[in-house]
Amino acid sequence: MAASDRRPPRTPAGGRTKADQWREQRKREDRAARWAAVSFLVAIVASLALFVVYISGGQAQLEGLTLFIAFGAVGVGLAIWVRVIVGPEEIVEDRYPMRSEDADRDAFEELYQSTMGEVTVGGRRRFLLRLLTGAGLSLGLALLIPIRSLGPGPRNELFRTEWGEGVRVVDEEGEPLRPEDISPDQVVTVFPEGATGSADSQAVLVGLRKDVPTDLRQPTVEGIVVYSKICTHAGCPVGLYRAAVGELLCPCHQSTFGVYDGAEVLSGPAGRPLPQLPIEVDREGYLVAISDFRVPVGPSFWNLTRGDGA
């Protein structure tokens, strides 16, 4: 009611008097107030319902739904209130340029010069200011040092894995594998014995078909090849094998590697082949590594080709 009084009187239109319009406006506002009241009541009921849901054990869908109804109803009530009952109101505010008045700027500059003059004794002790700045900067640098404590620097970790001469090839359960366990097109995630689940030593063993020619970089056991399972692009496990085309596919960014071609990159964003693990069969007939991978596994880094200096 206060709102309608505040509004400027409108010009009569269509033969209706101002009193008629005022009455209509009142009616509209009363109606709106009723709807707003209903909305707030709905909000109260929904909130109580939320209590009931919660106390009787909770249920995610009902909790979300009651919250939605409660807050939605509050929103509707408020929207009716501001749009219809309060009604639109327009005010005009002045605006000034952001820049200070020249007089203020000058006054402050003078103040700054005179007080800085006191600090530097008329400019004669300005070197003190410079040294203090220097001290502040050096201290700032010194305070960066704790960041270095967060982790050891890389030594040769990126060049080494748990694989090495004579280390047996085991599956996810830690069971050693024999060549005769592997059939063509079979794929096994393998690890060095004693390091099952290792992030950097994970490898993928693929059973090769006899009728497909191979072009491999490392010595291997007939019908079997083992590559690092870490994509050389962004380090995801190369988890998919498309046996029909002999391609290992990384599901993250879709690099594909040709299993029969020394894991050459066939498509996708990877920049280099998956390193191949040189393998042989030991005296007891199990698959073993001849050595560690001969190039670093995983995503490339700047000193990749320099070796670890060992």
Binding site: I147, L150, G151, P152, G153, P154, E157, D200, F301, N303
Partner: peptide
């Protein structure tokens, strides 16, 4: 490599 190691506290 240094940033990576510092972020994780060592090799991944």
């Amino acid at each position: 490599p240094l940033i990576g190691f510092i972020a994780l506290g060592g090799e991944y």
